[in-house]
Write a protein that binds this DNA or RNA. Structure first.
Lengths: 340, 340
DNA sequence: CTAATTATAGCAAATGTTTTCTTTTTCGTC
DNA sequence: GACGAAAAAGAAAACATTTGCTATAATTAG
């Protein structure tokens, strides 16, 4: 590989001059510039990134820490991050925490999480990244798992504390939007199959639904609110419970597509036509949603947008480390299919 | 950050000595070693990766080029790569080619592919990666898209030419295994819904199926072989065609889960019970397979294993660049569910 | 015409390591 | 006590840049 010295020699100038024409950091006479440019072309010179980084202290590399790349929304987010970073000349070191395998008990899990996260951060820092994006899938606030550090950090999908910059999607507004959509279709008896009762998304989405109802002077009766655990099976059992009710709802809003799938299975089994006899909607827009019978109307998570925005924020933070944290909440869209 | 000089000063030795105790590259007296170790601890010293790489010419970084991280098997492969590399102290720079968006015509697509791939390779090379893993989803041989280069390269999932090292899964044997499984369950009238007629996986899988049949003295009649296009809809239409046959098969082997899903939909519609009246199997083990009614027996792609193995191969190739290329074909496993 | 200013380019130090080559120290033996 | 070999440690060059400072030439002002 040709070095800056080779080019300098070829052009009959100093390496300093070559550096300046390469980076445009100083005004030079047109002739010199021309000479150097020719020499660069002739020598087929490309700057050595390592030497550059060593000297300048900037690697133009972002560390991306993901809880598990196999997690559903993660690939989309990483895709968005990568595209945006590439466009700005940043590279991306990806490190996977493999947090999808569950451990035996809550306590060990937290300890292991903390350890793995800090190992991951250390790894990235030892790679001299200019900043770190943490892509978390868990609904709980994980910031306390981070040892304090001076590398710029932004959270994507999961959110940190008020002191952190994060970008996530809107649970509350999206659920409210979907509710309004159902109301606009004439549904007034809306039942909900919620996720795990104590989880953050469940609470926020529930709140959004109730708000939207309240705005039109309606209220969801207690027996229409069932709590599941995000799994297919709980969609099945909770739907059975709803069907046993004296006054049945006209639509079931499942808080994810898996439970919606379980729900639709029961509805089919019971001989009810979807959406004529009962409508169903989900949340997440997983692959399965398009292949259910009928295809499921659901909520699309803005994964690419989250990634894009997180990338923008980390670059911003690198250029201006003292800026105040920004909290961005991106809207989801409704993908209309045939289940309503 | 403490530097090697600081440590040397603190321990009252030269930087050379510090380097030697850090890397264990020379025998030193126990006392000196001890002194240096203490100083390292006291100064909280960690070696500067950049300086190390600049001097040694090794970055301990692998570039991973993926055609699209959102592609189905890609996340699993990347996960495997990352885990294995991490264990050996290698970092991973991920670059996404975003090849999932289809272009207007075949020719432009190829040109664009070639351009994007070579850009990606250039980007990674400018990052001074020690080697590159190319994770391709396309069934065609893509090696001709690569400009010749001296960076060690291994293909994962997609395969290169005979001159390249690649690791992929077995189309032929897996299809044969599944066929034998069906035979063992007493099925003799096996129908196939193949993928696109001219695609590589279709040809290999078809060959495997026919081989397994031949081994027990059977042959698949021509009318039992239907060609689809890998999409749900083609599962629907080809199944309809099969049901119209005078002598119906007892099982339908769809070459992917999407077509199997379409197939099952038609079967349900026709009032046929699965697997009593007709059995169905798929290929890929996508998420949808677990949620079909009944859950689909299918073939599991060894994504993590492919990643692991590719990582091992690239490290091997880095340490021994002149070794001859290795071609590894990993077996798939059958995941038994309730559709047979 | 001189002095001050500006434009242009180069020198050399610095970034934090690794590694070759030398020098110093140690120690056993004669 | 001197010699030599072996062992231990150090000096300095090299890796490929960036950048503050300096030097020279050219232009302008007085």
């Amino acid at each position: 590989m040709a070095t800056m010295r080779d080019v300098a020699q070829l052009a009959g100038v100093s390496t300093a001059t070559v550096s300046h024409v390469v980076n445009g950091t100083k005004k030079l006479s047109p002739e010199t510039t021309e000479k150097v440019l020719m020499a660069i072309a002739e020598a087929n010179y490309t700057p050595n990134t390592l030497a550059k980084s060593l000297r300048s202290g900037q690697t133009h590399t972002i560390g991306v820490l993901v809880e598990d790349i196999r997690g559903l929304p993660v690939a989309g987010i990483v895709s968005g991050i990568n595209e945006t970073l590439s466009k700005s000349g940043y590279r991306m070191i990806l490190h996977d925490l493999h947090l999808l395998e569950k451990l035996y008990n809550q306590y060990e899990q937290i300890v292991s999480y903390r350890q793995r996260i800090n190992n991951g951060v250390a790894l990235l820092q030892s790679s001299n990244v200019d900043g770190i994006i943490y892509v978390g899938m868990h609904d709980r606030h994980l910031d306390y798992l981070f040892d304090p550090m001076d590398t710029p950090l932004v959270f994507a999908y999961s959110h940190g504390t008020k002191q952190d910059t994060y970008v996530t999607y809107s649970n509350q507004d999206s659920a409210a939007d979907m509710t309004r959509y159902l109301l606009s279709k004439g549904h007034e008896r809306i039942a909900v199959i919620a996720g795990h009762p104590h989880s953050y998304p469940t609470a926020r989405r529930m709140h959004g639904i109730q708000m939207a109802m309240q705005q039109v002077g309606l209220v969801i009766p207690e027996e229409y609110i069932r709590y599941g655990n995000w799994e297919y099976e709980s969609g099945v059992t909770e739907t059975r419970a709803l069907l046993a009710l004296e006054v049945r709802p006209t639509v079931i809003f499942a808080m994810n597509d898996l439970m919606a799938a379980g729900c639709m299975h029961v509805l089919n089994e019971a001989g009810l036509r979807i959406p004529q006899d009962m409508a169903v909607v989900g949340f997440d827009n997983r692959e399965i949603a398009s292949y259910l019978q009928p295809p499921l109307t659901t909520v699309q998570l803005p994964t690419t947008e989250i990634g894009t925005s997180a990338a923008l924020h980390i670059m911003e933070k690198i250029n201006n480390p003292s800026a105040s944290p920004v909290r961005e909440i991106i809207h989801c869209s409704i993908v209309e299919r045939a289940s309503v």
